[in-house]
Amino acid sequence: MTTIQVSNVSHQFSNQEYVLDNINLNVREGSIYGFLGPNGAGKTTTLRLILGLLKKQKGKIEIFGKPFDSHRIEILNKIGSLIESPSIYGHLTAINNLKVWQKIYQSPDNRIGEVLELVGLAHTKNKKASQFSLGMKQRLGIAVALLHNPSLLILDEPTNGLDPSGIVEIRELLKRLNQQHGITIIISSHLLGEIEKLVTDVGIINKGKMLFESSLTDLMNRQHQASTIYFDTNDNATALQLMHQQKIAAQIEKERIVVSQLSKHTIAQINQNLVANSIEVYGIRAIENDLESIFMNLTNN
């Protein structure tokens, strides 16, 4: 079942060009969806549209199978969110901050202690939130999002300002929430490396357009397919001609023949053909592109 379905949504601010151009996004129930894109790609705008913080101009948004516009309160009751910088009342303590939201959500009193424990802020007691570090504020923001036991968490760059151990802690917490409580999570980031250990599905957006959306496994397969093969021979010019005769796109770079995206079977065939034509093959080397470069390729193109 799909938890979030965004169909053909476009958005523009004033009369400027479209910041979102006909995007489609599908978040499966029980998944952790990594919403990736460089700064200014349209991630936050998309998440704000999903949450109703921006007036939808074009397209359709359904959450839990229901249109957002006509089921706003019912849907928001099951969503926890953290958009951009955390929403914290600086003059209040962490407990009072949570009490503000608890009054609205009517969650049980003991839930405040639970979420503070969960995000590691149980020790803050009478300290005002304005005196918190950025990382602590971020944790408190996550605590606010978790307060009412939501079925869907929408987190916009939640690890901003966290130190490496804090990032690992939050990642583990989100994994736990997903695996043990079945919470669907959509998490945006501009760093693939930061969330590739966490997510099950990936959506990549750039300049307001969705470039890729599938499972992380699919993205991994792309990584494999996008590997580059290097041939080192005694006669690169002849070898290149032979490859072109086999209709294989190859080129010479730094005295090596470079070919991309070859199956194991084709690599063996090329090798046989080269040897049959008296070309000495000194080495065949495959280098897989990392996910980061695939992401960069997708967003740069």
Partner: peptide, 18 residues
């Protein structure tokens, strides 16, 4: 202005209330 000052309008407007 409490909401503007603390950047909390977005949180308040995504609570389940009209």
């Amino acid at each position: 202005q409490i909401e503007f000052r603390n950047n909390t309008w977005k949180q308040l407007n995504t609570t389940p209330q009209s």
